[in-house]
Design a protein around this nucleic acid. Structure first.
Length: 566
RNA sequence: CGGGGUGUAGCUCAGUAUGGUUAGAGUACCUGGUUUGGGACCAGGGGGCCGAAGGUUCGAGUCCUUUCACCCCGACCA
């Protein structure tokens, strides 16, 4: 492509609302253009990057034996009613009616559509397994889109769905997809981690997220210092504390603790570590029909992990409760304990099971119990509800957990029969018996990957595209287009590189050297061949965007040299 | 969905407290000239329904009302 003819509107200044590097540079370098909140148009450079990412996905999916399809973007609301997700998704589903007043939604994900396509067409175990995917625009009417391509309302996603006759076969495919996704992200040149995740409302027996490590990521993940373990904090497990403080010595007793309501107060009053105190976090668990107050008990040094808490109760949502609501139940905030009290449902953190030497509220104003032995609560309901802390020990080895930030670029689920059951998608097994398909689903955010690459590969001058993602690999910069020798060498290289199918840009604009260099750095071509002053001595320079180093090369050797680098 | 903020030239923003020339700057763009290794310089030029609609006033970018859009913090996010 000739830069003089290309539509690449670069600017010196970023839109005032952009804060993320990817948002700033993709805007400044003329990749994307915002049209409304969460809606972006892809300009030529972005379109090229997207195609490259899609090609890599297609190649790896083909190797893994998945077939590409394309489902319609406009989906009948009836399918969403059938699966029950029209309520679950709520306002995120963009709904509208056609001229005949039939209700439709813009597809935010395509489980229903895919199941609908397969059901009644795949009817025997002999036709299984199959794995179908598409790369397509999705729409979710997010309450708050932000960060450019990172969280748009309209975005491009690769979504794959596999159908199996057994759980074992689904597990096998799940692992195969994990491997394929690893290859894709590795080829894209990304530093990533595969972590255990909360399956959320989609359900299923397990899920993993693919996290691109970046400080600007919206997710916090806990990773082990020694082994491969990593998990989203929403799902992270631990085996307890690495070092346990010395236990206080006391007899079981009810102790007067006037106006001692917070964990900090307790620590100071009893001169004891928060580890040996117990706090109660009261929440209202909201179910489809009704709601109830649930008391979550965790160690004083821990915090409640709300996603875990929600999963433990099976609630659709958990919300805060006021002191007045607790009062109505006869509970006094600051003095609530799990002993001798059944005014509300209890959920106790698993780390408190059989804990000894504990201090907890006595359910009486200004009184706490000391030296409580939790094993007396034999039948109580224990669950993992506490957030892991940095420094907690790994659930699988002796390593320590630490936190890092990640961008969720993929999420793979073992769905099981969740959708096939409700949508009545069945096949006949070896015994001629109807069975719902066992399914897996595999998502990868394509447009988000564009942003993720830049989050991980940029500097103060702009984008640094990796070899597999660069919109153009080589930029030929003619310093002064009035110098015919420079022009003719540039044109010659341009022809030769094109003949070898190298993606090449030639900057033939009537601009000064500095202007063109800044522009090339902002766009982020991996290599720029600078044809300039040194040509008098038979030399040109190859500028490496990543290292910002230039090496002088004889003009007759530059073609071979650049081909060697690619 | 709660709280906050901003809408003036393609872009970044002044101007609005206290209403009053023809609404400004930088940048980008066009013309001519000089420059040509790190976003050049000089001269000239085009470009605005001051987000929209109502109102107050002799007079509104500026005051009042309504509304729309966008952004930020939070809640939410298969």
């Amino acid at each position: 492509m000739r830069r003089s003819r290309a539509f690449i509107p670069t600017t010196k200044e970023a839109p005032s609302d952009a804060s993320l590097a990817s948002h700033i540079y993709l805007s400044r370098a003329g990749f994307i253009s915002q049209v409304a909140s969460g809606l972006y148009s892809y300009m030529p450079l972005a379109k090229r990057v997207i195609k490259k990412i899609e090609n890599i996905i297609n190649e790896e999916m083909a190797k893994a034996g998945a077939e590409e399809v394309e489902l319609s973007f406009v989906t009948p609301a009836a399918l969403w009613q059938e699966s029950g997700r029209i309520e679950k998704f709520g306002k995120e589903l963009l709904r509208f009616r056609d001229r005949k007043e039939n209700l439709f939604v813009l597809g935010p994900t395509h489980e229903e559509m895919m199941v609908d396509m397969v059901r009644n067409r795949i009817t025997s175990y002999k036709q299984l397994p199959i794995n179908l995917y598409q790369i397509k625009t999705k729409f979710r009417d997010e309450a708050r889109p932000r960060f450019g391509l990172m969280r748009g309302r309209e975005f491009i996603m690769k979504d794959g769905y596999s159908f199996h006759a057994s759980i074992a076969d689904m597990d096998r495919e799940f692992d195969a997809m994990e491997t394929a996704y690893k290859k894709i992200l590795t080829r894209l040149g990304l530093d990533f981690r595969i972590v255990e995740a909360d399956s959320g409302a989609i359900g299923g027996s397990g899920s993993k997220e693919l996290m691109v490590l970046a400080g600007s990521g919206e997710d916090t993940i806990a990773v082990c210092s020694k082994c491969e373990y990593g998990a989203n904090v929403e799902a992270a497990k631990r085996s307890g504390r690495v070092s346990i403080p010395e236990a206080p010595v006391a007899e079981f007793n009810k102790f007067k603790t006037p106006d001692i309501k917070t964990i900090e107060d307790l620590e100071n009053f009893f001169k004891v570590d928060g580890y040996y105190t117990m706090k109660c976090v009261a929440k209202r668990a909201v179910y489809e029909e009704d709601s109830e107050i649930v008391l979550f008990f965790i160690r004083g040094c821990d915090t409640l992990q709300e996603v875990k808490a929600q999963n433990a109760t099976g609630a659709l949502d958990i919300v805060d409760v006021s002191e007045e609501e607790l009062c109505e139940l006869g509970l006094i905030a600051g003095f609530i304990g799990p002993l001798e009290q059944d005014k509300a449902k209890h959920v106790i953190d698993i780390d408190l099971k059989d804990a000894k030497n504990m201090i907890c509220g006595a359910n009486e104003e200004d009184y706490h119990f000391v030296n409580v032995d939790m094993s007396v609560l034999g039948q109580a309901y224990f669950a993992d509800i506490a957030a892991v802390n940095e420094g907690d020990s790994c659930p699988y080895c002796s390593g320590k957990l630490s936190f890092t930030k990640g961008i969720e670029v993929g999420h793979i689920f073992k769905l099981g029969t969740t959708y096939s059951s409700t949508l009545k998608a069945e096949f006949l097994d070896e015994n001629g018996k109807a069975q719902p398909f066992v399914m897996g689903t595999y998502g990868m955010g394509v447009s988000r990957l564009v942003a993720a690459v830049i989050e991980q590969h940029h500097d103060e001058d702009g984008c640094i595209w990796t070899k597999e993602t660069a919109p153009y690999m080589v930029n030929i910069m003619i310093s002064n287009i009035k110098e015919t020798a420079q022009v003719s060498l540039g044109e010659e290289l341009y022809e030769k590189l094109q003949a070898r199918h190298v993606e090449v840009m030639i900057d033939d604009r009537k601009e000064r050297f500095g202007f063109k260099m800044k522009d090339a750095e902002l766009i982020g071509f991996p290599y720029t061949i600078v044809i300039g002053k040194e040509l008098e001595n038979g030399l040109v320079q190859i500028f490496d965007r990543k290292t910002k180093e230039s090496v002088s090369v004889n003009k007759d050797e530059v073609f071979d040299e650049i081909m060697r680098l690619l």
